[in-house]
């Protein structure tokens, strides 16, 4: 089985969010960029575990981004990816990204596409389902467990009101959430090996733009926290009922 793992470049989870150019662009200054945690911790590591067990022959990494993505791609290779491809374009919207990934997966005959359940910047949960829609293959959404037996996958995933265990034959797309695998830290050997692993750069397909961000806003600052004495909890109950009107 050939697995394609999609990685997205996101700001580190501790980033203080701000915007520039009249709140139309994210302020990347002094921001550390990382592999989207869901892509790295769950999708990539689970794919690598399958390879280590002899269940997958190849784990490739794909990113849609400009040359500043190379650092996170190298990290994915240091963790254990075999090779990588970068689609040389600014990731403008989810459909654009999904179309690039889907076309590459079809052309290169990948059996499975792995990615995180969402990115921590745009929180769309869109790319996985779109890739499945374009490829017309089953979509294992929000999976927390995944096992492979030849070409047949068994997965547990979140559905409204519970969990569902499903069985599906490759090809498929899977979006990974917590529980799939444990995060790994690349070791020195992996980092050295990653230096010589290939990163192929390809040009994007023309794809229509379905959405764009007009501008951003920051949440309205809270008026301030009203402190209540620890021995006066009845006052909190009263405020929640009469002032906040939430109970």
């Amino acid at each position: 089985m050939k697995i394609l793992v999609c990685i997205s470049k996101t700001p580190d989870t501790t980033t203080k969010i701000s915007f520039v150019d009249g709140n139309t662009k994210f302020n990347y200054e002094k921001v550390q960029l990382i592999i989207n945690p869901y892509d790295e911790w769950y999708a990539l590591v689970r794919a690598l575990e399958l390879k280590e067990k002899g269940l997958a022959a190849q784990v490739s990494v794909i990113n849609v981004g400009l040359a500043d993505s190379d650092a996170i791609i190298r990290k994915a290779l240091a963790i254990g990816g075999d090779d990588a491809v970068r689609v040389n374009a600014e990731p403008t919207d989810a459909f654009f990204v999904a179309d690039q990934i889907a076309q590459y997966a079809i052309n290169e005959k990948y059996d499975a596409v792995f990615l995180g359940k969402e990115t921590i910047d745009y929180n769309g949960s869109q790319v996985g389902g779109m890739v499945a829609g374009i490829m017309d293959v089953p979509f294992i959404s929000l999976a927390s467990k995944f096992e492979l037996n030849g070409n047949v996958a068994t997965a547990e995933r979140d559905i409204s009101g519970g969990k569902e265990t499903i069985e599906v034959t490759a090809p498929f797309v899977i979006s990974c959430s917590k529980g799939m695998a444990e995060a790994r830290i690349p070791n020195m050997r992996g980092i050295m090996a990653a230096r010589t692993k290939p990163i192929k750069v390809i040009e994007p397909n023309a794809t229509e733009k379905l959405t764009s961000v007009k501008n951003y806003e920051l949440p309205i600052e809270k008026a301030g926290c009203k402190m209540i004495a620890a021995d006066n909890v009845e006052e909190l109950v009263r405020l929640l009922h009469e002032e906040a009107k939430v109970i």
Partner: peptide
């Protein structure tokens, strides 16, 4: 935008070439 919506909406978006705002 619940677990099922997150799974269905992007497929619909790709199928219909419809812009999707999730959430």
């Amino acid at each position: 935008q619940n677990f099922n919506g997150k799974a269905i909406a992007p497929i619909l978006s790709a199928r219909l070439k419809a812009g999707l705002i999730s959430g």
